[in-house]
Computed example of a mutant assay.
Amino acid sequence: MSVIDSLLAENAEAVLRESLSNVVRHAAADTVTVTVTVSVYDNLTIEVADNGVGIPDDAVIRRLDNLAARARQANGRFSIDTTAGGGTTIHWSAPLP
């Protein structure tokens, strides 16, 4: 038995696929870290962090709107952190069913 239903699993898979695809295609990173957790607060959380060139401000909404839409659909949250010296961390979370 899984604590994640099929819709949440589908969203999580898509978030991972798109996040990693963006790192490979755009980040020019040589390191990426993926963390997937189920918290004591009953949330599924995905973080994808890279040490690449970062995301230009004008590209954030255009490239990653699908991830935000998936978070809204799952009653979750989505955010992006960029580091001044380069690197991006995508945070995506949704409550468990």
Rank of each mutant, 00 (worst) to 15 (best):
A14L: 11
T35D: 13
G85P: 03
T82W: 00
N51C: 07
N22D: 11
G54Y: 06
F78N: 01
I90F: 15
G76S: 06
V36N: 04
Q73A: 12
S39F: 01
I90P: 01
L7T: 12
D58H: 11
A9G: 10
S21L: 12
S19W: 01
G86A: 14
R63E: 06
G86C: 12
L44V: 15
D58T: 12
D57Y: 01
D50L: 10
I46K: 06
T33F: 02
V24W: 06
G86Y: 11
E13C: 05
L20M: 14
D50M: 12
L20T: 08
A69S: 15
V38P: 03
A71V: 01
T82R: 14
G86R: 09
V15E: 01
S79Q: 07
I80G: 00
I4Q: 06
N75K: 13
D42Q: 12
D65A: 13
D30W: 10
V15G: 03
T35S: 14
G86M: 05
H26M: 06
R77N: 10
V38A: 08
D42G: 10
D30H: 15
A84Y: 11
W92T: 00
V48R: 01
T45V: 13
T31Y: 07
A49L: 13
D30Y: 11
A27C: 06
P97V: 06
V3A: 10
M1F: 02
S2N: 09
Q73E: 12
V34F: 01
I55P: 07
R63D: 10
A94I: 09
V40H: 06
E47M: 14
L16M: 14
N66F: 06
T31L: 11
T89A: 10
R77G: 05
A49N: 04
A71F: 04
A59H: 02
A84I: 13
T83Q: 15
G85K: 05
V23M: 06
S79W: 00
R25E: 12
T35Y: 00
S21M: 11
T37Q: 08
Y41M: 13
D81M: 11
L96C: 08
D50T: 11
S21H: 08
F78G: 02
N11Y: 13
D30P: 07
A28R: 14
P97L: 09
R62W: 04
